[in-house]
Amino acid sequence: MNLLGIHHVSILTGKAERNFEFYTKILGMRLVKKSVNQDETSTYHLFYGDAKGSPGTELTFFDIPGLGHTYPGVSSITSTSLRVKTTEALEYWQKRFEAYNVEHEEIKKRANRDTLAFQDFEGTQLILVADNGEEGVAAGEAWDETEVPKEYGIVGLGPVLLRVRSSKPTAKVLQDVLGFRYAGSYPSLEGDFPDVEVYTTGEGGAGAEVHIQTRPDLSPEKLGRGGVHHVAFRVPDEDEHAEWVKRIQQTGMMNSGKVDRFYFKALYFREPNGILFELSTDTPGFDIDESVEALGENLSLPPFLEKNREEIEKKLRPLTLDS
């Protein structure tokens, strides 16, 4: 069994309206699903992705109004990458960030790729990474109903950066349990610290990598708005997911067992450094209850919550997303 790559990354926001503005109006991503947190149905869960809501393209946000800010540290998913096609696209984004007063760095090399680091209004650490024709996990399709030219649009998720005090326990789980392969390292951009380790899965490439940064000098992160809740990895279908459930349970690590999210099957567990991992199926997908053309237009509820729609909608705060 091989994981296919990164499925989605879930982040916390304290203001869904501004979040929507940033990710759709500035970044040009598509709102592919407006739903609720299935574990706390009085709050929203927003999903942004490519034109079709493809696996491997989604950033998701749990909306928690009034949430405090994140105190950065170890045992965390420190940054999330978003793929674009070329370095020329990075140059476009650099100018766009300047026009919109988005905090950003200069274009820099990470893992031998051209990258552009930036952050949203809540301090979420993001990195644009240029594919430049690299082979590996296929990209998605940029959303073209936005002012961002399609050739410069975001086409999927790139590497996630994990920050830990010691890389060995996390690397062991990635390699021995999840089947990732060590693919090299690159110098830390944060000072005199060990090189960042790169691990890859599936067909490889930017959409299939986990990077591990060792920072023994830091305290554990205190998660708040702008912080990453978990990263999910791609499993092709439900049959293979059942085998992954068995494998994770055999390790003795605490885990959720199979969780039915309707749009995908999930399993959650924490690796030894405390970072939350998820294994999610590509199937059935976000178009199971909405057409591709209408993705994200209405409040979507899985069948096991649909029967409680009236009660759920009463508890949800009003949310106006100006599309």
Rank of each mutant, 00 (worst) to 15 (best):
A89N: 02
G226Q: 09
V292R: 07
D322E: 11
S76N: 08
H7Y: 14
T13D: 14
G136R: 05
L31V: 03
N132T: 08
E243G: 10
G14A: 15
E151M: 12
L67K: 01
I312E: 01
R110G: 08
S291A: 05
Q94K: 15
A206G: 05
L316F: 15
V74K: 00
E240A: 14
G207M: 01
G28Q: 07
F121R: 10
H45V: 08
S166F: 06
N298F: 10
F61N: 07
E306N: 05
I127L: 10
E313I: 08
N255A: 08
G133F: 09
Y71T: 15
Q94I: 03
E103N: 15
V196K: 01
H241Y: 11
Q94S: 13
L295P: 00
S185V: 08
T80N: 10
R309M: 06
A206L: 14
L82V: 09
G123V: 08
A242M: 15
Q38T: 08
L305H: 04
K150L: 05
G226T: 12
T41R: 05
T146I: 05
I107P: 04
P216K: 10
G28N: 10
S219R: 07
L161W: 00
N255H: 11
D237H: 11
R181L: 04
G14I: 11
N298S: 07
V32F: 02
W244V: 01
A208L: 14
F62C: 02
E310Y: 12
F277R: 00
I127K: 01
M29Q: 12
V177F: 03
A16Q: 09
K307T: 09
M1E: 09
G140F: 05
D287Y: 15
A208P: 00
V137G: 01
A16C: 13
R163I: 01
P194F: 02
S79D: 04
R317L: 11
T57W: 02
S167F: 03
V245H: 08
F269S: 07
L59N: 02
T24Y: 14
I154D: 01
N132G: 06
E240M: 15
P187K: 08
A111D: 09
P187Y: 11
N273W: 00
L321V: 05
P284H: 07
N273V: 09
H211C: 03
S256V: 14
G227H: 02
G53C: 03
E122P: 09
A89V: 03
G204Y: 00
L174P: 03
A183K: 01
Y182S: 13
T283Q: 11
S35F: 03
R261N: 04
N255F: 06
H104K: 07
I275H: 01
V177M: 14
F193G: 00
E278G: 04
R270V: 12
N112K: 12
E134W: 11
L276I: 05
G158F: 01
F20R: 02
